[in-house]
């Protein structure tokens, strides 16, 4: 295989690998911009992956089979939003420590999804899932065609969401409210912005995106469900928000960098390049840690009230 083909394969594989991280990362960006970090992202993704899997599994062979994936995605978004609201109840209304509550949510989502899966489905099994939808004309372009235009619809949707989230966050009144409650909630409150409501909305949206990310894994990438399907990707998504400096475009860059590194290390192994596989497997994670450490030295533009509960009655 030529070097050009090798690199092209890395790009072709890296783009779809990045989608789950990107979707979850965009949602987590909104969470953190509102001042709440949600370590439960992993658990929400697990629940999203599970509920998305159910319609294609149970509707196979029925007249509704053609809509099963769509219903699955909708259910995953709804379940994610619901868990986001549950998290908001705990950390916004009851002002529980966000880190501990997030770990609790992670365990709840992971445990509930696994238990329900075994109760209603049983052992590991696959579904038809979402198929590739090459964009007519564009998918035949050299290099760029197979890299960008020969994927399933959720891949296109995920990348279209990047400018949409950027616009939402930086160009709309709601985005301004989100940023204000994450940066200086007391000032926002004094201006009549209902901090709790905005944080609830942000966490619901963040949860919906995590649910969608889970659906992507079970319906589009693995096309199956298993207990450990998420395998730490939710935590990586949280790290990518720091990596991307709380900006949707930066998060996309982080997701792509991580996934391309992942595709590169797999391709290096497959190519038989003499390199210890243990180091190859570590490569994407090491890369994220290195870049995160560099980010700390850069200008920090994150939400200053991140992780702090807001109580309007409490004096500073």
């Amino acid at each position: 295989m030529s070097l050009g083909q090798f690199l092209l394969n890395v790009l072709i594989l890296g783009v779809p690998f990045s989608v789950a991280l990107l979707l979850a990362g965009l949602g987590e960006t909104i969470n953190q911009r509102a001042g709440v970090f949600n370590l439960g992202c992993e658990g929400i993704m697990a629940m999203g992956a599970f509920v998305a899997f159910l319609p294609p599994y149970f509707m196979a062979g029925t007249p509704l089979e053609g809509y099963a994936n769509l219903i699955g995605v909708a259910l995953a978004i709804a379940a994610g939003a619901l868990l986001g609201v549950l998290f908001a109840l705990v950390v916004v209304t009851f002002r529980a420590p966000q880190g501990i509550a997030g770990i609790g949510l992670q365990m709840l989502g992971w445990g509930a999804a696994g238990t329900l899966f075994r109760r209603y489905v049983g052992g590991v099994t696959g579904v038809q899932g979402i198929r590739a939808m090459p964009i007519p004309g564009l998918s035949n372009l050299p290099v760029i065609g197979p890299v960008l235009f020969n994927h399933n619809p959720l891949v296109y949707l995920a990348f279209l969401m990047v400018p949409a989230f950027w616009y939402l966050l930086f160009k709309t009144p709601w985005g301004l409210k989100v940023r204000s409650v994450g940066t200086y909630p007391r000032a926002a409150d004094s201006l009549g912005i209902r901090v709790s409501r905005v944080r609830y909305q942000a966490l619901a949206l963040g949860g919906a995106m995590a649910g969608l990310a889970g659906a992507y894994l079970s319906l589009a990438q693995a096309k199956m469900f298993a207990d450990d399907l998420i395998a730490g990707r939710g935590f990586i998504a949280v790290a990518l928000v720091y990596f991307g400096r709380w900006n949707p475009v930066g998060v996309m860059g982080g997701a792509l960098l991580f996934s391309l590194a992942q595709a590169l290390q797999l391709s290096i192994q497959v190519a038989g390049i003499d390199f210890p596989y243990e180091f190859a497997v570590m490569l994407p994670y090491v890369l994220v840690i290195v870049v995160l450490s560099l980010v700390r030295k850069a200008r920090m533009i994150g939400p200053s009230e991140l992780g702090k509960p807001f109580d309007r009655e409490q004096r500073i």
């Binding site: 693995a222 450990d228 399907l229």
Partner: peptide, 10 residues
């Protein structure tokens, strides 16, 4: 499972 699938595609 996801990484195993990614490796299979690779």
């Amino acid at each position: 499972y996801v990484k195993a699938a990614e490796l299979a595609h690779t």
